Every structure is written in C-alpha cells, then in structure tokens.
Amino acid sequence: MPAYNKTDAHPSTFILIGIPGLEAAHIWISIPFCVVYLLALLGNCSLLFIIKTEPSLHEPMYLFLCMLAVADVVVCSTAVPKLLSLFWFHDGEIRFEACLTQVFLIHSCSTMESGFFLAMAFDRYMAICNPLRHSAILTRAVIGRMGLAVVLRGIVLLSPHPFLLRWLPYCRTHIIYHTYCEFMALIRIACAETKIRRAYSLIVAFLTGGVDFILIICSYVLILHTIFHLPTKDARLKSLGTCGSHVCVILVSYTPAFFSFLTHRFGHHVAPHVHIFVANIYLLVPPMVNPIIYGVRTRKIRDRFFKVFSFSKPLTKSFLLVRYI
C-alpha cells in the first residue's frame, strides 16, 4: 500500500480498492454482483430481441424501452467486468485513460437513462391525456429525434467531465476508494481546488436528472388528473395499469441514484462502504429489474416471450425423434 502513495501529479494508472473495510468479503460480495450482472445482460438482450421480432411492439413506449435497455447494458458493462476482476483476482490497477473513459460512459449513459424515462413519461401523457393525437405526434421520425436528443444531451453535457479530471494534479495518492472510477471519487483524491468542478457536476446533475424528475412528476400530475376524471372505474384502473410498469422502473432507478448523489456531496457522516454499496446498486439493480418489471407487467412482452420459449419444445422433440430413427 505505501508504494502506491509515492505519486506524481499526472499518474499513468490508478488503483481501485473496492469496498474499504470489506476486502475479506470481496469474493462473497462478487457472487451476487456477478449473478445480477448476468441477469441484467440476459434480461435486456431478451427484451431487445422480443421487441425487435414482434411487430405489435413497435410502439413508442417499447422503442424508448429498447433505448433504455441499451443504455442499461452499457452502464453495467462499463463497470462490472473490472469490478469482478478486482474482487476475484485482486486486479485493481486501471490506466488513467481507461479510468476517465469509465467516468464518461457511466455518467453520460446514466444521464441518457434519465432522458429515456422522461420520453416514456411523455408517451404515457400523450396516450392518456391526448389519445387522439398520440400516434400522429409520436411518429417514428419524432421518436428517433427524441432518442437522438437524449443521447446528444448526455454526450455534450458529460464530455467535459474527463477533461476536468485530466487537468487535476493527483499528488496525494493514486488509490481510489471505490469499485469503479466515479467523478466524485476522483475529485476527492485531487490535491487542488475543485469547487468549480464540483459546481459544474452539480449543475449538470440538476439540468439532467433533476429537471427530468421534475418534468416526470408534472406529467404524472396531469395524467392522474385526467385519469380521475374518467367516467368509469374500469377505465380508470386500465389507464393506471398502463403507467404501473413505468412508475415502478422510475422508483427503482431514481431512489438509489438520488441517495448516491446526495450522500456523496452532503452525507459526510455516511460510512464509505455504504456510499460504495449504494453506487453499485445504482449501476446493477435497475438494469436487472427493468426488463423483469416490463416482462411481468406487459402482456404483449410476456406473451411473446412464452411464444418464443414454446418453440423450443417441438424442436427438442423433433431432434430426439431424428436421433432415435
């Protein structure tokens, strides 16, 4: 450990420590992390395949869901392989450029996820509050432009992060007390004034996740107002049911995100391992849970899944019959 503290201002590598104080349990912690990661890959890839191959799912909500699935896969795949290498092989070394790339991909794709949640909320608003114009407004071209706008926003607003970190001197230590490279984790080990960089990060977080969350709440206020003015109870329940999956996904994603963001900046008395656990939950759990929520609650996706799965039975029987003959 002391050897890593002999540092210069511009390191070629950093050393990821993992979860401070729980190093002895890393191998056990890695097991659920690995399982959750594999489930996230399987669930999102299955979701993408099902939506692509089922023409009836080529609707705005499911197209935005595909965009969300891609962002989820990129986020967890950017962090988890290195995390598992650290936990399994004690390989905590990461090159400076790779660390900055990790910072950019994790933060920009997380911002894109928030934007896709907002786009999905807009789709629900149009479907419930203005159903006659829903298909006319949310055309394929409009959906594509909205998706492109969300991606460009994430790239443009988060591109300065790696440069802000590159220009900092790291003369205190090259050890990062985290499982992956995160903006605030690097800011904390810099030996220079970082108020402007922290302020920029705070402003970007508010302009993306903060504004998105406010607009999502506003859209659901209007949605609920419309739903409770519907004439029948069945119509109200049906309309609420179409929003259930989206609301569950938002709660699963935003809760750890806001907790991680607020504790990193204001929770100075929160134990470091709690910070890191929540940060990892934010990267791992939503990508795993999102396809499960939509798969269980959406009949079209569920029916298509069972339809694809049912093909395996006749194929297996035919194969065994051919071998027997």
Rank of each mutant, 00 (worst) to 15 (best):
P2D: 14
P2N: 12
P2F: 10
Y4V: 05
N5G: 05
K6C: 07
T7A: 14
H10T: 10
T13D: 13
L16D: 02
L22H: 14
F33W: 12
C34F: 13
L39I: 14
L42Y: 12
K52W: 14
P55W: 08
L57V: 11
F64K: 04
L65I: 04
V70Q: 08
A71V: 03
C76K: 04
T78E: 01
T78S: 04
A79K: 05
V80G: 02
L83G: 02
L83D: 01
S85T: 12
S85V: 09
F89N: 09
F89S: 09
C99H: 02
C99F: 05
L100M: 15
V103K: 00
S108D: 02
C109G: 00
S110W: 01
M112Y: 03
M120V: 09
M126P: 06
I128G: 02
L132F: 06
R133H: 08
A136K: 13
L138Y: 00
T139Q: 02
R145W: 14
M146L: 13
G147M: 03
V156Q: 03
V156L: 07
Y170D: 03
C171K: 12
R172A: 11
H178F: 12
T179D: 03
Y180A: 02
C181W: 00
E182N: 11
I187R: 06
I189L: 00
A190R: 08
C191M: 01
T194P: 00
R198G: 04
S201F: 15
V211W: 03
D212S: 11
L215W: 06
I216L: 07
I217F: 03
C218Y: 11
V221Y: 13
V221E: 07
L222D: 09
T226D: 08
P231A: 05
T232Y: 02
S239W: 02
L240D: 05
T242V: 13
G244V: 10
H246T: 12
V247F: 15
P256R: 05
F258E: 06
S260L: 06
T263I: 14
T263Q: 07
F266K: 09
G267K: 06
H268K: 13
H268S: 13
V270Q: 03
N280W: 11
I281V: 15
V289D: 01
N290C: 12
I292K: 06
R297I: 15
R297F: 15
R302K: 11
R304F: 08
F305A: 00
V308F: 06
V308A: 13
F311Y: 13
T316P: 03
R323G: 06
Y324W: 10
